[in-house]
Amino acid sequence: MRQPHAKNGNLKSLLGLIPATVVMLVFFVGALLLCIVQSLGYAPQYGINQFPTFQYYQAFLHDDGLWNSLGLTFYYAVVPTLIGAALSLFLSVAFAKAFKGRGFALFVYKIPLAVPYLVGVSIVILLFANGGLFARFFYAIGVISSPGDFPRFLQNAEGWGIMMVYLWKQVPFMTMMLYSNLLVLGREEEESALLLGASSLQIFFYVTLPRLMPALVGSTLIIFAFNFGSFEVPFILGAGYPNTLTVEAWRLFDDADYARRPEAMAIVTFVTFVSSLSILAYLVLYRRFERKRGRV
């Protein structure tokens, strides 16, 4: 598409950007700046005015629990993103085909998109707790003899319950993103590959996947970033300690001692920093991969 270039004198045509920019600057950039400023020791409302100091960063960077928490944060973020991406790729390709009940399936899979994560938490508690329905079912058929025999999915560091909730919400999201791209991209390339005698696996790996790559990278990026900074799911379904950095930040922010709040701010700033860095690394790797393949 040919687009006219705004000349310097024609700044008027860019006026439309102002409202969005102002809102984002004040409430988003402003929010992050206040986080950073407070984490550096400027919090006069709590009688703290040591700006600039790195003591609040040092406080948690020196804590031996930090690496544990950081590891868990990455683990809860990366594993469901990978599993979810694989499942969504598979499902989106299936959705592009014709099958009986397709309209129904295309309706139902959107339901998790329409409800908060907390609904997923409720469901996982009901089904996967040690006294939950699956444990009861296995007890009824004699596989386990007490709730303790059922594997522990909730409230421990392994975090299977957390990841189940993420998958429940995010597989539909990623499937939607990928499937919508499939719809727009059309099927001509696949069909010509089919005519040339390619197997369906070959078509998937050599034709479909490369074309879906940008959408896949985009949606995994959003999902990873969300999981990395999410709070309520690990708060309810994780171990009280150790837990993700965000839950740790919550604990400090909620402490009766207001003087600990700058430390909470230091943690969320750190989380933001690590998350952005990871995303940047991901994008750089992806660019390099694309360049190698001769695209871009």
């Binding site: 984002m24 929010a31 986080c35 407070q38 970033a225 900074g229 709070f231 965000t246 933001t272």
Partner: peptide, 16 residues
């Protein structure tokens, strides 16, 4: 905002 952790935005916004 899509890639910045919700927790950071929430706490920061409360400060704003």
């Amino acid at each position: 905002p899509l890639i910045v952790p919700e927790m950071a935005v929430s706490l920061g916004m409360l400060l704003v």
